[in-house]
Structure formats: C-alpha cells, structure tokens
Amino acid sequence: MKLQLQSSLGVDLDAAPNEAGGLPNGMALRERADVGCVFLNAAVNAAEVIEGGNEALGVQLPARPGSISRGPRCSAIWLTPRAWLVQCPVDDELELASRVNAAFADKRLHAALFTDYLYWLELCGEGAEAILQQGGFVSLERDGLAVGHAKRTLVGNIPAVIIHERKFEWLVGIERSRTKYFVGWLNSVRDAPAG
C-alpha cells in the first residue's frame, strides 16, 4: 500500500491566475511543490555543529544572517543563529534528514522533516517586488533585500520566508495551512497600480 501525495493547493497555479487576466504583464506565479525541506536546529552553539552538518549534507551551513549557500544536492538558508532551512528535491528529504540525525545521535543537531510545513510560491517579473511590498516592507534597507539572500518577515499579515533568487525572481514560503489565504491575498493585490 502507498498513500498518494497531493500538492498544497491541489491546483495548477501555473495556468490559473495568469489566465484570469489579473496578473500584470510579464508576471508569473507558480506553485513549487518540487521543493523539499529539512529543518536543522542546533541545541548548542552553531560553531559546534557546523562541521558535522556540512559533512552530512554536502553543503556549507552559512553563518552569516540572511545568506544562502548552495551545494550539489541541497542549499542551506540561515534562519536563526542556530537553525537553517535546507532545500532539496522532495525525494531527498528523508535521506538527508537521516544522515544528519545519524551523525548527531546525541541530538546536538536535529534534522526535522519540514517539506510539508512550507508551501512555496515562485513570483517572477518586474512587478514582483511591488506585489510583495503590498503586504509589508520586505526590507527597510535602502537597497532592499539583496539578490541571493533570504529573510523571514510578515507578508499579508502572515509569517513568510522570502528568498530573492535572481533579479525579478522571488520564492516565498508560507506555512501550509495558510496557503489558501495567501493565494487569496495575492489575488486581491495583484492588479495594484504601478508606482
């Protein structure tokens, strides 16, 4: 027996909102059900577990706030001084978590399965940042959130992880139970006037 899997929205976002005609020109919205996640959380100072973590995952766990490092199988995003979000293909989630947990049997570093905690949405296009800015500052810095960086903040009144992947390309992760709310919120703000 094998239970069937289902995406968070259960619909193909690729087509739906764009066809609805609301999305400004050149914008695209896509559900990223392919993104898997492991939540890494240290019970001790990060310095004591980084090396072991790097070895188990094959990626350098970043020590600098907001930074992301990319490895062959996964990327690691700094979340807190002791926690990282590891993004990987969904099918690699279990194995990566097991490798970390095997390396740290005393649980000084813990890898929790996290793929289904977050729903990932990709927002592309020149107006993408303006859409996000309807739900919050995104960044109060003069130059905004730099490309290649990530942060946690509030968007549309709910907590979100925002990753500025490339110029005009954003990945937003929100807690799964709020998916429908968030997509509804996006629909309500998408036709904002330029400015």
Partner: peptide
C-alpha cells in the same frame, strides 16, 4: 543544550477511536 522545532503544519494527525480502531489501523 536544547533546540525547539515547531513542526505542526508538517504533519497531519488522524485519530482512529473505538473498539475497532486497531483493526482499522491494521488496514494501513
């Protein structure tokens, strides 16, 4: 030396309750 990881939304929990709960669980 402790870490706290909230993972509520990652998991769905279905309770099977009643005299036949074990038989139902066995089906899985």
């Amino acid at each position: 030396q402790v870490a706290i990881s909230p993972v509520t939304a990652n998991w769905t929990s279905i309770a099977l309750a009643g005299p036949l709960a074990r038989a139902l669980l066995a089906r899985l």
